Computed example of a mutant assay.
Amino acid sequence: MHGLARIHNCSYCDYSSATKAGLVVHERRHTGEREFVCEHCGASFHSRAGLVQHLPIHLPESNYECNICQKREKSKRLLQHHYHKVHKEKRLRYLCPVCEDVFKSSSATRQHLTKSHGVARHDQSAIQRFELSVPDST
């Protein structure tokens, strides 16, 4: 909320909200209250927005289509997940400091260091990353 002070303070932690409604939803996470229940499957949510975001999974048709491969998903969020997982160009790669193998994520590199080289997580230094040069498509 622009221009509103965060005057509503959580009773359980140091969170504060500009609106009373925001605080109520936040505090439900502490109390475990989930008053919004899906009538199709019984899943419950802290907020109405969570339930509304969930409901499209029960629709018989997939309403969101990928403009690259025409895959259809039941929600905008699922389509975004598909796009980032399948189509988004991943240019960064991460280098193992021991054997110089290359990985797609720093977490995969750290897992490799632990399993292949026996380097405990707390003994691992920063993982070097570099950008792949992508060939020109012209």
Rank of each mutant, 00 (worst) to 15 (best):
C13I: 14
V25P: 02
A5K: 15
S62K: 15
G118R: 09
R28V: 07
R48Q: 01
I57M: 07
H117V: 14
E61A: 03
D136P: 02
V86T: 13
H122L: 11
V52Q: 00
R29K: 15
E73V: 15
G50E: 04
C41G: 02
H58G: 08
L78T: 01
R6H: 06
L92R: 12
G42V: 05
Q80D: 06
R28F: 13
C66E: 09
H82Q: 03
L51I: 03
N9R: 12
V86S: 10
H81N: 01
G3T: 11
S44A: 13
E131S: 03
H82W: 01
T138Y: 15
H117M: 15
Q70G: 01
C99A: 07
S125R: 05
I127Y: 00
H26W: 13
L4Q: 11
L55D: 00
M1E: 12
H112F: 08
A21Q: 09
H30R: 11
V24I: 11
Q53H: 01
H54R: 07
A120T: 14
V86R: 14
G50C: 06
R6E: 05
Y15D: 10
S106L: 03
L51N: 01
A18C: 12
R28K: 05
A126S: 14
I68E: 00
L23G: 14
T31K: 12
C41F: 03
H40F: 13
H58T: 07
K104W: 00
K76N: 11
K88D: 08
I68N: 01
S137E: 10
R93T: 04
S11A: 05
H112P: 10
H26R: 04
A108I: 07
R28Y: 11
S62Y: 12
P135E: 04
S44H: 05
C99D: 10
R29Y: 08
R48G: 00
S125P: 09
I127D: 00
L132S: 10
P56H: 02
H46D: 03
A49L: 00
Y94L: 06
A5R: 15
Y83K: 09
N63T: 07
K74T: 13
I127A: 01
S47L: 00
C10I: 05
A126E: 14
R34G: 02
M1K: 10
D136W: 00
R28M: 07
N67A: 06
Y12D: 06
L78A: 02
S16R: 15
E65I: 13
S75G: 12
E131Q: 02
A18D: 11
A126Q: 14
L4I: 12
P60D: 10
E65V: 14
H8M: 14
S44L: 08
D123A: 12
E35T: 02
L55T: 01
R48S: 01
E39C: 08
T31H: 12
S107K: 04
S106I: 10
V98K: 03
R6Y: 02
L51V: 03
N63C: 07
L132I: 05
K85D: 12
F130M: 05
K20M: 07
E35Q: 10
M1L: 12
L95S: 08
S17G: 06
E61Y: 00
H84M: 13
K90Y: 00
F103L: 08
A108Y: 02
Q80P: 02
C66H: 13
I68G: 02
Q128M: 13
R110F: 05
E73L: 15
V98L: 04
